[in-house]
Amino acid sequence: MSVPEAPGRPLLAVLDYGIGNLHSAYKGFSHVGADTRLTADRGLIRDACGVVLPGVGAFGPCMRALRERGLDEAALDRIEAGVPFFGICIGMQMLFAGSAEAPEIDGLGVFPQLVRPLPDTVKRPQIQWNRLNVHREHPMLADLGDEAWVYFVHSYAPDAGEEVIATCDYGGPVTSAVARDNVWAAQFHPEKSGATGLRILSNFVAYADDKARAAA
């Protein structure tokens, strides 16, 4: 499959595993200037200078859909190759070892922790905007201003580990953004978080673009 590349617009592959609404992430990245493709095509995924794993819904069905299309291996291959990678919501949870939501199925295991339900002292799902508490400066969270409010819709979140760069407070600290090397991930939905979210998407596009140029 030949892919005419738009000049000066970094190519991003949004992994299309056929579940939920993956178009929002696609629209968001397109809006901030990336040449975004919703795709399961291996060649295109290999050519992309950034890969996005979005997700809406439940851990089990998403993980199974990813496996059925072999996109679990495609994702791990790109992560190992050092390509900028961004997981969103369930796409972030799938990067972890597994989830209490579907104990019978393994996650991708990029991060070793497990994903667990939010505490039962708060309403679940968390459906609201919440303020990020930044634990560690990171390019993902650059230029967000004094207070970054982002939109969450989830009932589960990963246990804390050293990859956590931001949490929010919802019945206690909730893992909200993680990063290690080339892998970035957000529990919230940057593509639904207005100007703040678009800045985060554009931070990732800039990172992917810079890295591709440095390698060229």
């Binding site: 809006h31 207005g194 678009l198």
Partner: peptide, 8 residues
């Protein structure tokens, strides 16, 4: 709406 406005 979803193409132009990035809110839920």
């Amino acid at each position: 709406v979803a193409e132009q406005v990035f809110m839920p």
